[in-house]
Design a protein around this nucleic acid. Sequence first.
DNA 1: CTGTTAGCGCATTCAC
DNA 2: GTGAATGCGCTAACAG
Lengths: 346, 346
Amino acid sequence: MDIREIAKRAKVSTATVSRAINRVPTVNPNLAKRVWKIIEELDYYPNTQARALVSGKTRIFGLIVSEITNPFFPEIVQSFEDIAVQHNYEILLTSTIHDPKRMEISVRRMIERRVEGVAVLTFGMEESLLEGLRFRKVPLVFVDVAPHSPRMSNIRINYLQGIRQAVQHLAALRHTRIAFVTGPLQLRSALVRKEAFQESMQEIGLEIFPQLIVEGDHTMEGGMKALIKLAALDPRPTAILCSNDMTAIGVMREAYDCGISIPEELSVVGFDDIRLSEFMIPPLTTIRMSQTEIARLAFRALKNEVDREEPAAEGTEYLLDTNLLLRKSTALAPGNSHGAISSREI
Amino acid sequence: MDIREIAKRAKVSTATVSRAINRVPTVNPNLAKRVWKIIEELDYYPNTQARALVSGKTRIFGLIVSEITNPFFPEIVQSFEDIAVQHNYEILLTSTIHDPKRMEISVRRMIERRVEGVAVLTFGMEESLLEGLRFRKVPLVFVDVAPHSPRMSNIRINYLQGIRQAVQHLAALRHTRIAFVTGPLQLRSALVRKEAFQESMQEIGLEIFPQLIVEGDHTMEGGMKALIKLAALDPRPTAILCSNDMTAIGVMREAYDCGISIPEELSVVGFDDIRLSEFMIPPLTTIRMSQTEIARLAFRALKNEVDREEPAAEGTEYLLDTNLLLRKSTALAPGNSHGAISSREI
DNA sequence: CTGTTAGCGCATTCAC
DNA sequence: GTGAATGCGCTAACAG
């Protein structure tokens, strides 16, 4: 069942069938209709491999994520798939699990399948391993870390905006001892979040206590360990801002085990707004970084690059904002339960 | 950069290059070495499309899941990817979101890309839409629902084993009013779980109260709603078995909001053992259905079918057990807190 | 054991 | 506006 079979039955040449399928406008409408009729009768589907071979376009984009099992990523994958399908693209999805060897294999798989572009959503890990793709002039899109060179796009996330909102929200609730649980600091985006926290504190004159900045690893376990450290301090922090939601969830879980009630004794703020965060006990106040929007931007960046005649010399930047989303995991700092009254008293 | 370029530089024919690449044993080792040297020097990667076109083998398996954003599936996707890569296969992943239209599009995408087989991990939804694949003699593997026909494999899950263990565990803890929150009952696997619950209750002579069987939908929201219904009953159930972990998580969340403490006032058991369940408050006792194992079996089923000369007339069945995994969300039924003593007293 | 050659299914020249 | 012919990059059949 191939294009020739269709041609024979429609009594036209294969060229005409090809043109009909690709909706070349110059083809006679009657012929086109005849061809399409046969195609549907026979339930014929063009062979993508053959098309790719001759056209040089595979219509596949690679999507590299750090961990598909991390709840942050499936939303991105889903959105990316939606958009890709709308544009007749297929996805080659790989998950590196923070393992350079897997990243290497990912790159090899992408090259072998001749993807037209790759979205590298690892938030700053192992970009050096992408040399093979760069060398082959495959358009790439990163989050936070793209070099300014041709065919490289970057989604720059405005971490500061959301983090500043969170810090000011906590400050407004009379918190002064605000802790920050970072991500793995070799991760570019984790480092930037931490710096945004420090900047946000400084600009409103809040003191940054070094022992209140503890390193996590963007996992629940990391959050649990972080809380143990922070809870041991005297005095304890009254609020904790976390580098991502999984960390915040770990913090909340450990707080429960330690008998620290949230938000009464401890306010917690997350980052990402993964879907789960809404279902925490209590629902987690967090900084929203739209996964859908990241997927959208990543796809658009790749598509733009593929469609473009001449690649922009400096690559392209896309911006994404973050915003605080209030739920139930923050409250007035303990000892300020009559905060409204105190302020009147002043 | 193609096979001819390599051939020219290695001063051999393209056929020899091809043979070297494919490690045909008859090729002269010296020539092979020479060829491989050039290949690595030039960092040459064979064009998969061309290979697929001529060999008729795309080395792609389709993987259809119901919802990638459902935490149950990413583990499967990850495991499936791992195994696929080991066998030099690529995955075409699609997520149907329980939408027949998306299922249709999935099938079309699979056919267009000429996948060699498809794992349909939707647990009993919309199989009728797979006709196009069946028609094209594409091997298929299902969970629970495969018809007994050629090229169809089935992973039959022994739900009863785990559910029986759970029911007996609850019975041993003196629970008699045991509720069951089902999944969406049009889902084959959800129906089977419910029946397994009923059978497990009956066989140990425990009464099944119809109002204690409430329909959920395998989501957290469904679990929350279910608990509201069950909590309104008088007397209330003292234990709830859920058709999946997401439901159990919803139940636990709503119990918290209602001030019902788990496990003291209410025992909860889930099903699936998604990774999250271990991190619940308290850690969720659940029935383990290994996602890794499902992925493994699904891949193996497809691979077997592809490698087989003649398809088995009746298809093939693979079995997977389920087992209760004790954590912290169950306890003696309330009013039996001195259960050990009571039993001595009898 | 190696090279020559013919297609795999399709898009795209180029004549007509 | 349509058809015949060429070739995308590779494998497999055959000849040597």
